[in-house]
């Protein structure tokens, strides 16, 4: 009886998981088909894979440049974000005042402002400072839009470090720097890692700002994909190849770090 139940559950779980994963799987398969195979009716599950689409994508639009832009902007915005968010989160967690909660909520509310709402002013300012289509410009934007979430995540991690441990360090003669270096950092490293991971993923996938503020020079992979979305003509295989190249790095990365990532996203409310 229990055995049957286990098999039913196993079957159901696998079925649902495969269903949910199917679109990605299909995208991956299509990327290795010819254009004709890609739109065949009925769909082909078995075919001789080809690498042509990938070669074509690279030669037509220099995938590597976009990938480099994505990588640089995500990593840079993550580092910059940590640099700004960590001290703030530390301050909020360990020098809590009556206004701390309000401050946190206010930070989050800036994240709720739809990007479109401020696109034009940002565009104008960027034009003024010649930040349009630059990696610096995108890095700044990514940092700002991730900052509230980063502060929140780090805050909830830091808050879980018992106060008394810091007090013990203080009694042991630790300065603020020692405290950070020898206690907070080692104890909060998991939180810092989760936060960094999430920020990387969000920046990598950010589509709105990169579409509107960058193009040929600083464009990220999201920009590249958009250029394949022309409504005329069905180039599914190439589109899939480009898409696969855009998402594969971050998906694989995400698989390895899923535990850390999810833990962080619970904001410490879920243990």
């Amino acid at each position: 009886m229990d055995k049957t139940l286990l098999w039913v559950r196993t079957g159901a779980a696998w079925l649902v998981a495969l269903l949910i994963f199917f679109p990605i799987l299909w995208l991956g398969m299509t990327a290795f088909k010819t254009e004709l195979q890609a739109i065949s009716v009925p769909p082909k599950f078995f075919f001789t894979p080809t690498l042509e689409n990938f070669i074509e994508v690279q030669s037509r639009s220099d995938y590597l440049l976009y990938a480099k832009n994505s990588l640089i902007t995500s990593v840079a915005s993550t580092l910059l974000g940590l640099l700004i968010a960590a001290p703030a989160a530390y301050s909020m967690a360990f020098f809590q005042t009556r206004r701390t909660k309000d401050l946190l909520v206010w930070m989050l509310s800036t994240k709720m402002m739809p990007a479109v709402g401020v696109l034009i002013p940002v565009y104008v300012v960027y034009q003024q400072f010649q930040l349009l289509d630059t990696r610096l410009g995108l890095t700044i934007i990514f940092t700002m839009s991730n900052l509230p979430i980063m502060v929140w995540m780090l805050y909830s991690y830091f808050k879980d470090i018992p106060r008394e441990i810091l007090e013990a360090a203080r009694m042991d003669g630790a300065t603020l720097y020692d405290e950070f270096r020898h206690v907070i950092l080692p104890l909060g490293i998991g939180g810092l890692a989760s936060t960094a991971l999430l920020c990387l993923v969000l920046s990598w996938n950010e589509s709105f700002w990169s579409l509107n503020l960058s193009s040929a020079k600083a464009g990220t992979l999201a920009t590249l994909i958009a250029s394949y979305s022309s409504p005329e003509g069905l180039f599914w295989a190439k589109l899939s190849a480009a898409s696969l190249m855009a998402i594969a790095p971050i998906i694989v990365f995400g698989w390895f770090c899923q535990k850390q990532l999810v833990q962080g996203l619970t904001f410490g409310a879920v243990k």
Partner: peptide, 16 residues
């Protein structure tokens, strides 16, 4: 398998 869609960028999600 379950977590994967979360990492797909919106542009790709839409086109897919």
């Amino acid at each position: 398998l379950l977590i994967s869609p979360f990492f797909v960028m919106p542009a790709v999600n839409a086109l897919l």
